[in-house]
Simulated scan of single mutants.
Amino acid sequence: MAEMAASPSAGPPAKSSQNLDDVMLAMDVVDTLRHQETLVSRELGEEDRNAQLLQRLREIYRGQGIEVPDRILQEGVQALKEQRFVYTPPGPSFARTAARAWVNRGRFGRMLMAIMALLGLGWGAYQFGVVEPARQRVAQEQAQVERNRIELAERLPAALEQGHEDVLREAQVPAARERAAQLLADGRSAISRGDAEGARQAINDLEVLRADLRREYALRIVSRPGEPTGVWRVPQRNPAGRNYYLIVEAVTPDGRLLSLPVTSEEDGRTVTAPKWGVRVSEEVAMQVQRDKNDDGIVQRNRLGEKRRGQLDVNYLMPVLGGAITQW
C-alpha cells in the first residue's frame, strides 16, 4: 500500500523532466542544423526536403551514438524554420546605448582618463613651452622699455654731460675738443628721439676718448736679441718697390708695455697688438740699422711720444704713416 501511494506523487516530476529533455534535444537539433549551413541551404531548397533532412539528421546523431525520436527531429526542423531559439538583438535605442555604456564603463573610464591625461600633458606643454616663454618675453620687453624710459629721462642725459665734461678736462688739443662736441651732439640727438642704445654708444665713445687722452707712452724701437728691429715688404701695387717698417712697442713712463689697437695697411684689419711695424723711408730704416750694427743696440730707440691730453703720437723721426701687424 505504501508503494501504491508513492507512485502517483512521482509521476509529475518524471513528466517535467521528460519535457525538459525534449526541449533540450530540440535546441540541439536546431544548433546542429545551424552548424550544417551547406546541408540546410541545399536541402531546404528542394522537394521532399523535410524527409531528406530528417534522414540526414538521423545519420548525424546515430554517428554520435544518440537515438533521437523523429518527433524531436521534426520539432527541431520546424523550430529552425520559425526562427525559434534564435536570439535577435534589439535595435538601436537610447536605453540600449545607455546599457552598453554602463556595461563598458570601466573601459570607457580608462579611455577617458587616458584622454584627460593626454590633454593635461598637452596643456602643460603648451603653457610651459609657448605661453610662459611668450609671457616672459613680453615682460622683459616691457621692463626694458621702462628702463629705457627712466634712463632717457634721468641717467643717460646726466652721464652724457658728465662724459663730455671729463673729456674737456683732459683735452689739450682742438681735435679732442671737436671730437667730444660731436659725440655730445650725437648723444643728445639719440636721447631726443628715444634711442637709448644710441645714447649709450655716445657715452661709451666719450669714455674711450677720455681714456685715450689720459694715456701716455713712448714708441720704442725693438732691439732685443733674436727680434727684428726693422723689416721690408714688396707692395702689391708696386712689385719693383719696397716698403720699410720699424718694429715698435708702447712703453708707459713706469715701464709697462701696452697693447694698442693698430690698423694694418696691408689688409685693413684692426687688432690689439703689443708690437707693430711703423712705415718709414728707406733712409730712416738704414739709419736705424747702422745704429744697431755698431754695438747690437739701437741707441736712439725712441721713435715718438704720446703725451697726456693729446690724441696723436709726436714722432721724433720722420714716418710715412702706414703700419703692419704681421711680419
Score class of each variant (00 low, 15 high):
Ala190Leu: 10
Gly198Ile: 13
Arg193Gln: 02
Ala185Met: 04
Leu183Phe: 15
Pro174Ala: 06
Ile203Arg: 14
Gln201Lys: 15
His164Glu: 07
Glu197Trp: 13
Asn204Cys: 01
His164Gln: 05
Gly194Ala: 05
Asp166His: 06
Glu178Ala: 15
Pro174Ile: 03
Ala185Gln: 11
Gly194Pro: 01
Ala180Ile: 10
Arg188Gln: 15
Leu206Gln: 08
Ala199Tyr: 03
Leu183Ser: 12
Gly163Arg: 00
Arg177Lys: 09
Arg200Cys: 05
Gly198Asn: 10
Glu170Ile: 01
Leu184Tyr: 01
Asp186Met: 08
Gly187Val: 00
Ala175Asp: 06
Asp166Ala: 10
Ala159Lys: 02
Ala171Asp: 05
Leu184Thr: 11
Pro157Thr: 07
Ala185Tyr: 14
Asp195Ser: 06
Glu165Phe: 03
Leu206Lys: 01
Ala190Ser: 11
Ser189Gln: 08
Glu207Asn: 12
Val208Ala: 04
Ala158Asn: 01
Val208Asp: 12
Pro157Phe: 14
Asp195Pro: 02
Leu183Glu: 14
Ala199Phe: 07
Gln172Asn: 10
Ala190Ile: 14
Arg177Ala: 11
Leu209Ser: 03
Gly163Cys: 04
Ala180Cys: 12
Ala190Trp: 09
Ala181Asn: 02
Asp186Cys: 09
Gln182Glu: 08
Asp186Tyr: 04
Gln201Ile: 13
Gln172Leu: 09
Leu160Thr: 05
Arg177Ile: 04
Arg179Met: 13
Gln182Phe: 15
Arg188Ser: 11
Ala175Val: 12
Asp195Ala: 07
Leu206Asn: 04
Ile191Asp: 12
Glu170Asn: 02
Gly194Phe: 10
Glu170His: 04
Gly198Lys: 02
Ala199Asp: 06
Asp195Leu: 10
Gly198Arg: 03
Leu184Trp: 02
Asn204Pro: 07
Ile191Pro: 08
Gln182Gly: 04
Arg188Leu: 14
Val173Ala: 08
Glu161Gln: 06
Glu178Gly: 14
Glu197Phe: 05
Ile191Ser: 14
Leu209Cys: 05
Leu209Pro: 09
His164Phe: 08
Pro174Trp: 14
Glu165Thr: 12
Asp186Arg: 13
Glu178Asn: 09
Gln201Pro: 15
Glu197Met: 10
Gln201Met: 12
Ala158Cys: 04
Ile203Asp: 14
Glu207Asp: 00
Val173Ile: 06
Asp205His: 02
Arg179Val: 09
Gly194Asn: 05
Leu209Ala: 05
Glu161Tyr: 02
Ile191Arg: 15
Asp205Gly: 00
Asp195His: 04
Ile203His: 14
Ala185Phe: 13
Ile191Tyr: 06
Asp166Pro: 09
Gly194His: 13
Ala176Leu: 11
Arg169Ala: 11
Ser189Glu: 10
